[in-house]
Amino acid sequence: MRLTVNGQPVETNAPPGQLLIDLLRADLGLTGTKEACSVGVCGACTVLLDGRMVASCLALAAQAEGADVVTVEGLADDERLDPIQEAFLERGGLQCGICTPGQLVAARSLLNANPAPSEDDAKRWMMGNLCRCTGYYQILEAIAAASQGEA
């Protein structure tokens, strides 16, 4: 099957039982996407599938056939960080970093859908991405900062 991952065409022989996260991490070496809860709750495995965020731990690789997948590795553009990545760095939106790839992909998809989210919008959108380090405050600040930069 064919798909596009971070703008690159990919051809793979994924067995039917392969999950999208395993295709990304094991076959393509894109270990930025993390697995934590494995049941779609924590958000560490969040990727964009045709522009919408999904849980790659619950998606079959087969569901990505012909699709455009974006992972955390695809956010930066030629060494230039995405503004949401910059904002997370500046505002302390990350600590241990294990949830960060998922947070960033989710935040990116929020800003794509809603370039000027209210705090309440951001809290609702991001509630599917658990973080145990930051208590979320600085993540929400980072999103607000990035949104102001983009608005």
């Binding site: 779609g40 958000g43 969040t46 965020m53 999904v54 849980a55 619950l58 989710a106």
Partner: peptide, 9 residues
Amino acid sequence: VATVRIRNM
């Protein structure tokens, strides 16, 4: 229902 990510799927 759940979260945006799950509602997307």
